[in-house]
């Protein structure tokens, strides 16, 4: 069974007077443990697609099944729980809470967890060590460099041991060295069995993934998996 199953997803934004059609009939299945990158020019609808995948917004029409649950039928409580337990977000702009230490930022998802397991602090510390941030535990977001902030957000996205990591242009604000390190972390996570969906418009970043999907103007225009299949059929 696929972890993510999207069938004819459309998303329109209604504004005063007009409606923007951002996603048009997107069909997308992603297997558990896969490493997928989504490519496309700015404004193609990548972030919109990720918001729907991450249960941050509902599609205007279509069906989205995440881990066997039909997301459209979930209420706010259940959606929040799905986000809390199954998904870890990494953003281009980091999105750390300002004025709060790295350690506390990492434990943020646990505030909203159903039960907070013992040894939260130890786990957060271990994750920060894993991303090489053990020397900056008590720095606030403003006191960290971009690369350091991104490492904290990765630790945060992992604290609840999610099945799915959604990363929206995680290297977009980083220099090439930090970008490489971030991608290294993702590569390792996939080896541990985490599913990763990575949004990017840089090909060398996208090539870390096993599968590359291109979207353009709200539609999937190419999918490396499908091409393989067609190639296989041709052969």
């Amino acid at each position: 069974m696929a972890l993510i199953e999207m069938n004819s997803i459309c998303k329109n934004y209604k504004n005063i007077g007009f409606e923007t059609r951002v996603l048009k009939n997107v069909r997308l299945h992603i297997e558990e443990g896969d490493y997928v990158s989504i490519m496309g020019p700015s404004g193609a609808g990548k972030s919109t697609l990720m918001a729907i995948m991450g249960c941050l917004s509902q599609p205007t029409s279509g069906e989205y099944i995440l881990d066997g649950q039909e997301v459209g039928k979930l209420n706010d409580r259940k959606l929040s729980r799905v986000r809390n337990e199954k998904i870890g977000f990494v953003f281009q702009a980091f999105h750390l809470l300002p004025g709060v230490t790295a350690l506390e930022n990492v434990t943020l998802p646990l505030i909203y967890a159903r039960q907070s397991p013992r040894g939260i602090k130890e786990k957060a510390r271990a994750l920060l060590t894993k991303v090489g941030m053990e020397h900056r535990l008590h720095h606030t977001a403003g006191q960290l460099s971009g690369g350091e902030q991104q490492r904290v957000t990765i630790a945060r996205s992992l604290i609840n041991s999610p099945r799915l990591i959604l990363a929206d242009e995680p290297t977009g604000n980083l220099d090439s060295k930090n970008g490489r390190e971030t991608m290294q972390t993702f590569d390792n996570l996939v080896k541990e069995g985490t599913t990763i969906v990575l949004i990017t418009h840089a090909l060398e970043v996208a090539q870390h993934a096993r599968r590359i999907i291109s979207i353009h103007d709200g539609q999937i225009v190419s999918d490396s998996d499908r091409e393989e299949k067609t190639e296989a059929r041709v052969l």
Partner: peptide
């Protein structure tokens, strides 16, 4: 928004 992303309910 950040809180909501990581599981805060309304």
């Amino acid at each position: 928004g950040i809180r909501r992303c990581f599981g805060a309910r309304r």
